[in-house]
Amino acid sequence: MNTTTPPPLPDAKPEPQPGRLSVLTLLKQPAATVGAAVARGEETALTVRFTVSAVLCLAVFGLVLGTYASGAQLWAVPLKVAGGGLFAALLCLPSLIIFGVMGGMDLGLRRALLLLSGMLALTGLMLVGFAPVVWLFSVSTASDNFMGFLAVVIALLAFIIGSRAQWKMAAQLGLRQVGGLCLWTVMFIFVILQLTCTLRPLIGQYDRLLHVNEKRFFITHWVDRGK
């Protein structure tokens, strides 16, 4: 009987090494991107690249959000969205380092900044992807509440994708226990939600840049807006 030997199974496909590291390589291969950055010693350069991308993308999303009210909101909202994103990241940086190290990661300030800027850049990129949808509604609806709701939902969706990449990058850097990072992610969302109140008005007419003297909890603010 003529038996034929089946061809050997191919080896598991190794994750390709990305070429020039950028937000796009992060989008497709988060773990390989951060791994390559560490291996090539490009952590700082990549952090700068991610931060610049994040600021630009967040500003573009802010600009589109600002078209809803137009006028002064066209410059105020991009400024607040980009600044708010960076502020939230810096606020949560110390806890990211502590939780990361607790989770088994080899994490210092430089790598923590890489993780944060990568997450923020990817979130920003996703927000730019959502921008046409936001623009479509901004020119067709007159409801502040609907626009606010839409912006928060879209921001959360974009953050989930950015956060997913951050988890993959963290796994590449040795994360074994995920409890701390879970808590950190929830806390970051909470900070972002509070910032939607702190940086008001993001939706609706511009009256002043910030309501610094009117301190409010975001739930109270949302409930009042919904009335």
Binding site: L90, L91, C92, P94, S95, L96, I97, I98, F99, M102, M187, F190, V191, Q194, C197, T198, K215, R216, F217, T220
Partner: peptide
Amino acid sequence: LMGMILLGLAPVAWFLAWHAPA
């Protein structure tokens, strides 16, 4: 270690405290 975790969370606690209404 709990002290270190709380030290990491302190900036967020300060941020929330700053929003406390009268």
